[in-house]
């Protein structure tokens, strides 16, 4: 039983990683007042660029670089539409998601001709698992061995990076000048403007960070979790990250917990396939799969707590006399 639990938590960590990257990406964007339903598109774009880069150059790191570049470029398109041209944030996000969904397949077919996939990655062109020090030595120690060697050790570097990004984000958001201004601009851009700070510049920078994190999420999917790009491989992770962001009420640590919860539900869903629980019968996998979305809707409706987002979110900033 304990071992099963460890294995499920292990799976949770792997599944949660892209959610954590993407939800934190959304956190930077939305705390700065920019609604980002384009997380999905950025993840997918990065997944493709990273896999393509890794396949061509034979290095996961070069792939990662391309992934991040692709994702940041998309974030800049979003910024250009929402910040510079006061466009609708949702429409812009939908546009980005749609363009990427089509473009990745088009380019992939054209460049690699493998039915929309990239070549299978191996060796240096993938992020492989890292064995933590003494993991082998401790493997046989009861309890600790399982926790350390199975659960904590043996993930790839991006998994550790994702978890490390949570305290880093906490620190950036709450302890730095950039974080203070970013939070302020999402709450009351007029206050920021009258304090002599450029609203647009802060929002663009927030989107760059958002792009980088989505880039990591995408690269993780195609060059670490899987060995190559598949059509539509983001499979709604961007939207689920958005749900986790809302569920975590736009705060780093609760967002992490939401991602872990959603990741855990995913791991449970896979485990529960075909399992008959005495007295209840077979729990349909789909019932577990939809829980993140159902929970988020309930939260938004105010049935479980209250999700209050940044006040100025989604509204273009127009300089006007107050």
């Amino acid at each position: 039983m304990f071992e099963t639990l460890i294995l499920m938590l292990d799976a949770t960590m792997r599944v949660s990683t892209p959610l954590i990257f993407a939800a934190l990406a959304g956190l930077y964007s939305e705390r700065a007042g920019i609604v980002d339903i384009g997380l999905e598109g950025k993840i997918l774009g990065s997944a493709f660029a990273a896999a393509a880069g890794a396949a061509v150059f034979g290095s996961a790191w070069i792939g990662l670089f391309f992934g991040i570049m692709a994702s940041v470029s998309l974030a800049m398109v979003h910024g250009f539409a929402c910040i510079t041209h006061r466009g609708d944030h949702i429409v812009s996000g939908v546009a980005i998601n749609t363009i990427v969904a089509g473009l990745t397949v088009t380019l992939s077919m054209n460049w690699f001709g493998m039915g929309g996939q990239t070549p299978t990655l191996s060796g240096d062109s993938r992020f492989l698992s890292v064995t933590l020090p003494f993991a082998d030595a401790l493997a046989n120690v009861p309890v600790i061995g399982l926790i350390y060697s199975e659960l904590l050790s043996g993930h790839n570097i991006l998994v550790y990076l994702a978890f490390a990004m949570v305290p880093v984000t906490y620190w950036v958001i709450y302890k730095t000048r950039f974080g203070l201004r970013l939070r302020a601009v999402g709450e009351n851009p007029h206050a920021v403007d009258t304090a002599g700070i450029s609203v647009a510049f802060i929002r663009y920078r927030a989107l760059i960070v958002c792009g980088i994190l989505c880039g990591l999420a995408g690269a993780y999917l195609s060059t670490a979790h899987n060995a190559g790009f598949l059509k539509d491989m983001s499979a709604g992770k961007g939207y689920m990250a958005l749900a986790a962001l809302i569920f975590g009420k736009w705060r780093p640590v609760p967002v992490l917990l939401a991602c872990l919860l959603f990741g855990f539900l995913d791991a449970v869903a896979i485990r529960m396939q075909g399992v008959v629980i005495p007295g209840i019968g077979e729990v349909p996998v789909q019932a577990i799969e939809v829980l993140p979305y159902v929970l988020t809707v309930l939260l938004l409706a105010g049935f479980i707590g209250k999700a209050i987002g940044p006040k100025a979110i989604g509204r273009p900033y127009v300089k006007e006399r107050a």
Binding site: A81, C82, V94, M109
Partner: peptide, 18 residues
């Protein structure tokens, strides 16, 4: 690929919407 159509669709949303 036929997906080029999706790209065009996305671009239409971008230019005539956002």
């Amino acid at each position: 690929t036929p997906e080029i159509v999706i790209v065009i669709q996305g671009l239409v949303i971008l230019f005539s919407g956002a």
